[in-house]
């Protein structure tokens, strides 16, 4: 029991994932600044933001809304993100082998943060939050099918194995999946799914700052907003880590390999950042079409290719 709690709360769960995720989010902001020829925020900026929201700011509750749900939603988001983080990171860091079928569980757990944002947004009674919530829901409906197709492609490449640990050890033995043609296509589709899951530009219509003033986050302030930030930091680390586990042979922390593992994560986040900096926000209609038609098509092509062993 104590061991499980340690896994959940400290390593590799809540604390570790949040700290790494916070540094990654600094890296994302710094790269963004460099792309725009700016200097960018200091290294500990995400921590300052988090502690400011947690300790200093007042929490305002919605007057015409459900206060309990409004406050509970961010906590569930943190729980969902850290449980998903534990399931992803335990096999990835080689601590425990997980269980058979954990990919399916991870798939469901990864949707919890987005769902709780919607619930929290709808509980505020703010019309702009409702607009954001409905957009987020449409976005989930469109990328989730693509995401499961990508997972199906990977499972097929792994010879119908649905355990993350087996997939990683298969890649360690036979070379990474990301090296083949179908693997490259799956990688591209996966990157766009992550982009939508993290609600980064071009798929940030639910939060559109300039248009609906923060959308699903509009009413959050103080401690609940700090919780949302925490969930976002965790997601910012575990989604790239999941991608690396499934397509790039996982992480390895022995000797010089540690550098290679860190570079893998930084490279994936760099890709996400560059996509977010070089694209405008798309309308929700365009985003839905993008996933339902083009990304699904690519994923199906990849599945067919991998069926023929390419």
């Amino acid at each position: 029991m104590a061991e499980q709690l340690f896994y959940f709360l400290i390593y590799p769960g809540l604390l570790f994932a949040a700290v790494v995720g916070a540094f990654l989010s600094w890296y994302d902001r710094k790269i963004t600044a460099w792309v725009q020829f700016r200097k960018g925020p200091p290294l500990f900026q995400p921590f300052y933001d988090f502690f400011k929201l947690l300790l200093v700011k007042e929490t305002i509750l919605p007057k015409h809304g459900s206060k309990g749900v409004f406050l509970a939603a961010p906590i569930f988001a943190v729980f969902g993100a850290s449980i998903a983080g534990v399931f992803i990171l335990l096999p990835l860091l080689g601590i425990e082998s997980g269980f058979k079928g954990d990919i399916i569980v991870i798939f469901y757990l990864l949707t919890i943060p987005s769902l709780t944002y919607i619930i929290g947004a709808l509980a505020t009674g703010n019309p702009l939050a409702a607009v954001g919530g409905s957009r987020e829901m449409k976005l989930i409906l469109s990328y989730e099918l693509t995401f499961i197709l990508v997972l199906a492609g990977i499972i097929q490449k792994a010879g119908m194995s649905i355990s993350l640990n087996e997939i990683i050890s298969l890649q360690v033995l036979n070379g990474v999946f990301g090296g083949s043609l179908s693997g490259i296509i799956l990688f591209i589709v996966f990157i766009f799914c992550i982009q939508a899951k993290l609600a980064l530009v071009p798929f940030d219509a639910p939060e559109a700052e300039t248009e609906i003033a923060g959308g699903i986050m509009i009413e959050y302030s103080g401690t609940p907003y700090a919780m949302i930030k925490l969930a976002k930091y965790i997601m910012f680390f575990i989604l790239p880590a999941f991608l690396i586990g499934l397509l790039w042979g996982g992480l390895n922390f022995e000797g010089i390999n540690i550098l290679w593992s860190i570079l893998k994560i930084l490279f994936v986040v760099l890709l996400l950042t560059l996509i977010r900096n070089t694209n405008p926000r798309v309308k929700i209609k365009q985003a839905v079409r993008y996933f339902l038609v083009w990304m699904n098509l690519l994923a199906i092509i990849a599945i067919v290719l991998s069926y023929f062993g390419l």
């Binding site: 700016r38 200097k39 960018g40």
Partner: peptide, 21 residues
């Protein structure tokens, strides 16, 4: 803008007054 860049001090422009300091 890049020339002055207040994000150096950790300042960002937010869309909702609920996030404002």
């Amino acid at each position: 803008t890049p020339r002055y860049d207040v994000e150096r001090f950790g300042m960002v422009l937010v869309g909702s007054v609920r996030h404002a300091d």
